[in-house]
Design a protein around this nucleic acid. Structure first.
Length: 195
DNA sequence: CTCTCGATGCGCT
DNA sequence: GCGCATCGAGAGA
């Protein structure tokens, strides 16, 4: 946790940002309670070039944040009961973002267990809907800066080497399934599917 | 272990 | 109306 993340970190190609987000910490603070998890699984969504991306059909009230500059959270509500959190990246108007799919719980584990009613640490933050539940992430977090340490933010932690990253197809989509834009830390027990 | 299916709200065609 | 970047319960093998 030595250095700070620079704003330019986010205004790069979505694939590069996705890979570099692995190992970083996602921090949530609510009512004075802090929860921290290490990012171990992500997926890249490349805006107007990517049929599976919410931004593919252009800028709407929902996708508005994705068309802003990199460095902000895009949170959406899905299947009537779950939230998913993304990190917007690249230049404004690209519409690209990185979905956070799993965390390794580091701090505030008991709070997360209460929110999820699940005792097993391995299952606590496994899957995008589950991790948002554990970290109390909802649509009120949409549009927040990733660098403002108030409600939800990112902090540097481990640097993951390319040789420690495993690539595969994205989960749960029906279009552009051939793109291998899911990235996980090899052999990490907290990812949402076996590696 | 694998597979199917229902829950449930909302953005878009 | 349809379909969705999900999850977990329940059935079957």
């Amino acid at each position: 946790m030595a250095k700070e993340i620079r704003p330019e970190f986010f205004t790069r190609n979505v694939i590069d940002v996705a890979r570099d987000l692995l190992g970083m910490q996602l921090v949530s603070s609510l009512d004075g309670i802090k929860c921290v998890g290490r990012i171990v699984e992500v997926e890249a969504y490349d805006g107007l070039n990517d049929q599976a991306c919410h931004a593919f059909r252009g800028c709407t009230p929902r996708t508005n944040v994705m068309f802003g500059p990199g460095g902000y959270f895009y949170v959406y509500f899905i299947y009537g009961m779950y939230h998913c959190v993304n990190v917007v990246c690249d230049q404004a108007d690209r519409g690209s973002a990185v979905l956070i799919r799993a965390l390794e719980p580091l701090l505030g584990t008991e709070t997360m267990q209460m929110r999820r009613k699940k005792p097993s640490p391995k299952l606590l933050c496994r899957g995008p809907g589950n991790l948002c539940n554990a970290m109390a992430i909802d649509r009120s977090c949409n549009g927040l800066s990733c660098l403002t340490k108030r409600r939800l933010w990112l902090e540097p932690d481990q640097v993951i080497k390319d040789s420690q990253i495993q690539t595969g197809p994205r989960v749960g989509i029906s279009r552009s399934v051939e793109l291998e834009w899911r990235f996980v830390i090899k052999n990490n027990p907290f990812v949402s599917k076996g590696n």
